[in-house]
């Protein structure tokens, strides 16, 4: 196995971790279930410690494993990263086990999975590595496929500017995303509020160029898909976009899927497409050598 030779980080298990683990496990119906809850709790506490060392904000306040109903039903070990609106799943790995077992209930809204290696003595654990959330649903992933903790840091860093569109349907917006009418007054009369549709806009700043407004409208369809309509407007009293302004739609890997360019008298640019839940896309706005990108997750 790969991880024997490579460097791993050891995390001591605190007394408080054992106190929580014991308390949560003692509520369970059977010894086996109790053991699962015990190890899940320790795994979450260990990953918390590690994130704490690196000053990465995290909380268990919204964790399912910290809720008596959820932890009794599901095999969950989730840790919230509130800045990202995502969870890290901390998966215990027992001695002799060579795969990470991901329960189906631990897939939704996960940024990824951290493998936590236990030994017979429950004094410390080793962090085996990180697996970014992926769409393929393997229930067991060989430990050799785990990436390093550096990949976790990169994923968290990239995630920090991914706007979570699913939260828009629940009325949760980042501050910079404002009601469209307040940004583009001419749209006030044209927008008809509809169920399952949310629109918000954001001012995009460049150096030495007039600001733009990016408007995103999302609509839930009956098939579980989300229709997205993006528009770029000039900000303020300016009537037209700068000629040559280019707007591109990027997929998760950064490949261009759609593009539009402003002509001499273009009032706005629009891109329409539909997404599946968990799809990640980016919008790149560029003019000459300047460009800015916004990332979204559905």
């Amino acid at each position: 196995m790969k991880h024997i030779n490579s460097q791993l980080l050891t995390v001591p298990l605190k007394q408080q971790a054992h106190i929580y683990a014991q308390q949560f496990a003692a509520e369970q119906a059977t010894i086996e279930k109790g053991k699962q809850v015990y190890l899940n709790t320790l795994a979450v506490c260990a990953v918390r410690s590690y994130l704490q060392w690196l000053a990465i904000e995290n909380t268990v306040a919204q964790s399912e494993c910290w809720h008596p109903g959820f932890r009794a039903i599901f095999n969950v070990a989730d840790l919230d990263l509130p800045q990202l609106g995502k969870k890290l799943e901390c998966i215990p790995v027992l001695p002799g086990q060579n795969a990470l077992v991901i329960p189906p209930e631990a897939i939704e809204n996960r940024l990824g999975y951290v493998g936590v290696q236990f030994r017979e003595e429950l004094e410390e654990v080793e962090l085996l590595g990180f697996l970014p959330a992926q769409k393929t649903r393997h229930e067991a992933i060989p430990l050799t496929q785990l990436k390093s903790l550096d990949d976790l840091i990169d994923t968290i860093e990239r995630g920090e500017w991914v706007e979570n569109l699913r939260q828009w349907f629940e009325g949760v917006f980042q501050l910079e995303w404002q009601p469209v009418e307040s940004l583009v007054p001419s749209l006030r009369l044209k927008t008809i509020p509809r169920q399952n549709t949310v629109s918000r806009g954001k001012i995009m700043h460049w150096e030495n160029k007039p600001e733009l407004i990016l408007v995103v409208r999302i609509t839930k369809t009956t098939l579980g898909k989300v229709e997205v309509c993006l528009r770029i407007y000039p900000y303020g009293d300016i009537a037209h976009l700068l000629p040559g302004l280019q707007v591109e739609l990027l997929d998760e890997l950064g490949t261009v899927c759609m593009e539009q360019q402003a002509g001499k008298k273009t009032n706005w640019i629009q891109l329409d497409f539909s997404c599946q839940p968990d799809d990640i896309f980016g919008v790149r706005i560029s003019l000459g050598e300047m460009s800015m990108t916004e990332q979204f997750i559905v």
């Binding site: 003692a26 369970q28 109790g34 008596p68 001695p95 030994r119 004094e123």
Partner: peptide
């Protein structure tokens, strides 16, 4: 001293001591 193989024994006593086990109620 906490150990992996000690969890079973620990829980046997701890679970029996709890009168109202919420986890058990969920399973019920």
């Amino acid at each position: 001293k906490f150990s992996l193989s000690g969890i079973d024994l620990l829980l046997k006593t701890e679970q029996e001591e709890q009168r109202q086990r919420q986890g058990k109620a969920v399973w019920e």
